[in-house]
Design a protein around this nucleic acid. Structure first.
Lengths: 363, 363
DNA sequence: CACCGGAATGTTCACGTGAACATCGGCCAC
DNA sequence: GTGGCCGATGTTCACGTGAACATTCCGGTG
């Protein structure tokens, strides 16, 4: 490979036209990068001057700059980020470790992270984890260390199976999404508790005596917090707390819970921990002839786009995933730039109750 | 060079404890990487020997290897991928350019790409595009060129606004998902036509006279192909072709189309181009008192997990996004490894009709 | 006992970039 | 006229790695 490159380099390259053919290579030859030295040779300057032009440094006279720019264009020069990274010890890349990209919330968050990072000149490197164990997270972290990454964002909404919380190597810039590691890392999260509370209060405010709850998987921090806030809100209001039903975020599990709820004659209001399970609940209630919101009111969580088209359109708690992603990037960049202390604490993104047609006063 | 480095290094570093603190840096000092030279010094060998151990090369005697490994562990050494990339001209990273990660299909595909790439030792670098113009794609491509990327996977299911198809710089390893660029690039895609055909045939087979169609956005290749295949299947069977209704993938737009369909008394069967719009159609039909599948049969496309919990559970065409992602990675890796010609052509992933309760013979 | 071969290890260097320093030339003040 | 200064450009070198080549040391062979 190097032989192949150096032969044309010394001989043919500086002759502009020939180089052009070599770089474009429609034929499918291995792409061969153009270096500063190539540009310098064509422009008749030193490679340092090319570097100065490339980085917009002052001290290059106009005519020289023009020559260099022309040479860059002609050769199709692009800086080599590996060399830059080596030089600077900085990579302009943020690593994202996550479990399960198939969740609407997670993919939204990742999208926001990527978009926001891009505007700041950072790229995103993604490492998915199939099974969320402490070992796997650490393994991903090691890979991140080997990769060109300046900081890491960890999106793992699930309790780690073999340890209570995520433990990261110290001294690494990191932000954790949706976890309770707030005392050790920067955490960004939706304000789960406030969201759940607003859902419960909405239902109580309509006149329901109490609110049943369908939880997410017990391994999920978010599910836990929503369930807890739901219970607290009921207790605060002095209402009885019905036993929670457990789901796993899937519509299927919501359906199962809904079938049970349909068998509870005094159940008039349900707060479901996410919209997909709410879809299952709606189906079950419909199949069992329990009208929504006539007999039973239902509130979801997430406000996925589809929820406006459920039958009936779902009252739900809106989560601002984009904002979560944005704040992650901001926090991480601040850490990188200030170079320093990992500020710990939790940054809560507020929610908003979206009232549609699945809730009404009890009859 | 070596003078400056050896002075502090030779002095302070090898003292294990101090170094440890320097590397871990809970205090917040800028993280300073441990290099091969550091390990070599501690182990009392040359850095080349460390390199040999790190890469599992033969020709290192057991005792030496052990010493080096111990030193690595003690210092927490991790190879610097930027330097490796510079050395090899290879980055072990695949770039993914995509428009809209919020689609279930896209996020699934990306997840599969990331997972599969990870098992092959490749990481994923993500660049999202907010508006799918040719310029933006080229811009993303330029960024990819600057970044450490060996190949690119382009996931853009939308016609580019200012040009018919995606045009990529020649001579770059690339795979395109869901596009018609099959004559110039490797393309991986779900077999849209076969899927649409199976949906239509299913409905005709149940005895429906013809099938109405709700399309996706007209800018989408996939939507186009599904619509075309739907029309062809009807024509082949000698059936009349009702005018297609146009949606934009969203449940909302499906709802609008559904309201129109509810006003067509002779409409007994609908093929909707994706499940989310089908959700809207179901809602509209329900609100207008058109029973599904009693009066109207509905078939979707995608088989998103929720569709099993629609009311009624949706008959739909299953898309194997994971397989699409897997094949993308395979193709791209083959191109990287064979170093050569971009094989063009289209690799079609088959679909599967999943029959649930939203279809029945006409009354 | 000189010599050879091969295994273990060390030394040199290049990858592309950019900071630090060196050089060169012109212009101004004395 | 000469010294000094400043602005434009060139030269050197290190970032961390690993291939290629060099060296050392050993046992074995003639």
């Amino acid at each position: 490979m190097d032989l192949e490159r150096q032969a044309p380099d010394g001989g043919a390259r500086p002759t502009g036209g020939a180089q052009r053919g070599g770089s474009g290579v429609p034929g499918g030859r291995r792409r061969q990068r153009v270096s500063m030295a190539d540009v310098a040779r064509l422009a008749g300057v030193s490679s340092q001057t090319v570097s100065r032009v490339a980085n917009g440094h002052p001290g290059v006279i106009g005519s020289t700059r023009e020559q260099v720019l022309a040479a860059m264009r002609e050769l199709g020069y692009r800086p080599n980020s590996a060399a830059r990274a080596l030089r600077y010890g900085q990579f302009n890349t943020i690593g994202v470790i996550l479990f399960n990209l198939s969740t609407i919330g997670n993919s939204r968050t990742v999208e926001a992270i990527a978009t926001h990072a891009a505007t700041e000149g950072y790229a995103i490197t993604l490492i998915p984890i199939d099974v969320p164990t402490q070992d796997n997270v650490l393994g991903a972290f090691t890979r991140m260390g080997e990769l060109a990454v300046d900081a890491v964002i960890v999106i793992i909404e699930v309790h780690l199976l073999d340890a209570g919380t995520v433990t990261l190597p110290p001294g690494v810039h990191a932000v954790v999404v949706d976890s309770d590691a707030g005392d050790r890392y920067s955490v960004v999260d939706t304000d789960q508790a406030e969201g759940a509370r607003s859902a419960v209060r909405h239902l109580l405010g309509l006149g329901h005596r109490t609110v049943w709850h369908v939880t997410g998987p017990q391994t999920s921090f978010a599910a836990q917090r929503r369930a807890q806030a739901c219970r607290l809100a009921l207790e605060e209001a002095g209402r009885p707390v019905p036993p929670p039903l457990h789901g796993d975020w899937s519509a299927e599990s919501g359906y199962a819970a809904g079938l049970e709820l349909a068998g509870e004659p005094d159940c008039t209001a349900v707060f479901v921990a996410n919209d997909q399970m709410a879809l299952g609940v709606l189906r079950a209630l419909h199949e069992r002839g329990r009208a929504v919101p006539g007999h039973v009111s239902v509130v979801g969580f997430d406000d996925i786009p589809d929820s406006a088209c459920f039958v009936p359109p779902l009252t739900t708690v809106h989560q601002d995933f984009a904002e979560v992603g944005r704040r992650c990037v901001e926090l991480v960049l601040r850490q990188i730039r200030e170079g320093g202390t990992t500020p710990s604490g939790t940054d809560l993104v507020p929610t908003r109750l979206v009232v549609r047609s699945s809730t009404a006063p009890p009859r």
